[in-house]
Every structure is written in C-alpha cells, then in structure tokens.
Amino acid sequence: MGTRLDDKISSAADRTIVITGGNSGIGRAAAAMLAGMDARVVLTVRDLDKGRSAAETMRGPVDVRRLDLADLASVRAFAEEFTDPINILINNAGIMTPPFGHTADGFESQFGTNHLGHFALTNLLLPQIRDRVVTVSSIGHRTGTIDFDDLDWERRAYRPMAAYGQSKLANLLFTSELQRRLTEVSAPVIATAAHPGLAATNLYQREGSRVLASVTEAVIGLISQSETQGSLPTLCAATADIPGNSYVGPGSFWQTRGEPKLVGRSAAAEDAEVARRLWTVSEELTGVEFPLSTL
C-alpha cells in the first residue's frame, strides 16, 4: 500500500518556493501551508488581482507574479524576470476538460497548459533550482495515452477527459525523464510528482464539462476530501525525504482520499522510451531544452 508520509513533511522555513496556480484549489492550500512554515512563497497566476486576494489570506512573505502557462511568451518573460535562487518549484496549475481550444501557441489547451507550459518553465528555471521540482499529476493519468501523431486532437474527435488523461500522463513521463537526466549529470536536484486524489476544489465546476458538473455534487461530493487534505501529497513530494521520481498520493479508497503515501502509477507512465520521445517532442514544440546537458 506504500509508505505513509504525512508525518514526514519537513519544515520549509526560509526556502523560496515557486508554485504555479497558487490562488485556488489545492495550490492555494499548499501555498498557505508553506507560507505558514515561514517559506518565501511565490504565487504565479494568470490574474494578478485574484493572486493578490489569495496572498492576503496567507501568513508570511508571499510574492505574486503573473504567469500564463498557456502562452510560452509569458513563461519566458517570467523566467527572464525572476532570477532569484529557487529551492522548490511546484508545477501545480492545470485545467481540466474544457471545451476544445488552443493555447496562444496553437497547442490543444490541456496538453499545452498542463504539460508544455510546465515543461518550458521547469527547464528555463532549472539552473536556479537548488532542491527539487514537484509536478502535480492526477489519477486521471491512468486513462491517458500519448498519441504522437495527434497530440493536439486535430485528426480525431476531441474527447475532453481523454485529452486531460494525456496531459496528466505527460506530467509523470516528464518527471521520470527529468529525473533520469538530472541523475545523468549528477545534479543535486530531484524531480518528484504528486496527485491530490479526489479533492473538493472548483476545478471540476470551473473547467469541467456539463457531464462532470452534473455528477460533482452527487458523487464527487460524497467521496472527495478537502482542499487542505488534497494538498498534503504535494507538500510531502516537496519536503519529505524521498527519492527522485517518487509519486505521492492518498493511500486509501483507490487513491481518492486518505493520508499521503508513495503510490504506484500506470504501466504507460513507466515507459522510459515514450518518456524520452515525449521529451524530445516537447523540446521541439517549445524551443526549450534541458539546460544542464553540458555540465
């Protein structure tokens, strides 16, 4: 069933932690807890007003910066402007099952935002990162496949949940390949991943299809856990003494809720060949490469 980790959340005092999408949901809960540990938290958000409102509810030094993961120009601008050392980068932001659409760079919105935006951000910031990169995936990764012939859903009928699954599978493949590369160059940084299980956030209502919205109150509301509880796997992945490429999630009810533990992932998420191919394709699509390859 995995190793229980809720008692292994370490202090984050005096550490600089950049978290994407920290103004709502589990990202906000995680950011608030980290700020309460006296970390220097940097919230990156699309809407500065919403970000500042969220920051006002948190204790400690919370910095708010604009970053739109659906626009690679915005990702590059943030990386160019934020030059401070970073202890931990938490790739938390994401969208779930929106209507078919594209990012500013023409990618399918979920793949472009959830994966490519974070891929570019991580590699651009990597020379500044001192400890680890945490990427938030989902139990939905188990429904995903990486269709290299149609990553942007241009040749087949768009299925929102399948596209979401592809993006969340990409998050785990990214984590494993990032860890492989970090190990190869003997970097002190590690890559870990987490998922919140089924948390009672506004993600389903805000981005979800009408089908998902209709079952939220009747089903999700019955078995989900709070945003705070859902943020604990992220906190463990960010601060606990765990090896690279660890995956942390709730340990009960088919990983939908419960105390955080090291959990398993799908066979597709462990495919090293697909992970390497996805990395190469992602470099080509974003124009951003692994910056430590020559060290």
Rank of each mutant, 00 (worst) to 15 (best):
S10A: 13
S10Y: 03
S11Q: 14
S11N: 14
S11A: 12
A12M: 10
A12V: 06
A12N: 03
A13G: 12
A13N: 12
A13D: 10
D14F: 05
D14N: 11
D14A: 11
D14T: 03
D14Y: 09
D14G: 07
R15C: 00
R15L: 09
R15F: 09
R15Q: 14
R15P: 01
R15V: 06
R15W: 00
T16Y: 06
T16K: 13
T16W: 06
I17S: 10
V18N: 07
V18F: 04
I19S: 07
I19L: 04
I19H: 02
I19N: 04
I19Q: 05
T20W: 15
G21K: 03
G21M: 04
G21F: 04
G21P: 02
G22A: 14
G22L: 03
G22D: 07
G22M: 00
G22T: 01
G22C: 08
N23W: 10
N23E: 09
N23D: 15
N23P: 02
S24N: 13
S24W: 08
G25C: 15
G25P: 15
I26A: 02
G27T: 15
G27V: 13
R28V: 08
R28F: 05
R28L: 05
R28P: 00
R28I: 05
R28Q: 01
A29E: 10
A29W: 03
A29D: 11
A29G: 10
A29V: 09
A30E: 06
A30M: 11
A30R: 09
A30L: 08
A31V: 05
A31R: 08
A31Q: 10
A31S: 15
A31Y: 08
A32Q: 14
M33L: 14
M33R: 12
M33D: 12
L34Y: 10
L34A: 09
L34R: 02
L34H: 08
A35N: 04
G36R: 00
M37L: 01
M37P: 01
M37S: 03
D38K: 01
A39G: 05
R40L: 09
V41P: 06
V41A: 03
V41N: 00
V41T: 10
V41W: 10
V41Q: 02
V42M: 12
V42Q: 10
L43C: 13
L43D: 11
T44H: 11
T44N: 08
R46C: 02
D47W: 04
D47V: 01
D47P: 03
L48W: 05
L48I: 15
D49L: 14
D49V: 15
K50V: 01
K50D: 06
K50G: 09
G51M: 04
G51C: 10
G51F: 03
R52W: 05
R52N: 08
R52A: 02
S53W: 12
S53K: 13
A54R: 00
A54H: 02
A55L: 06
E56D: 07
E56H: 12
E56K: 13
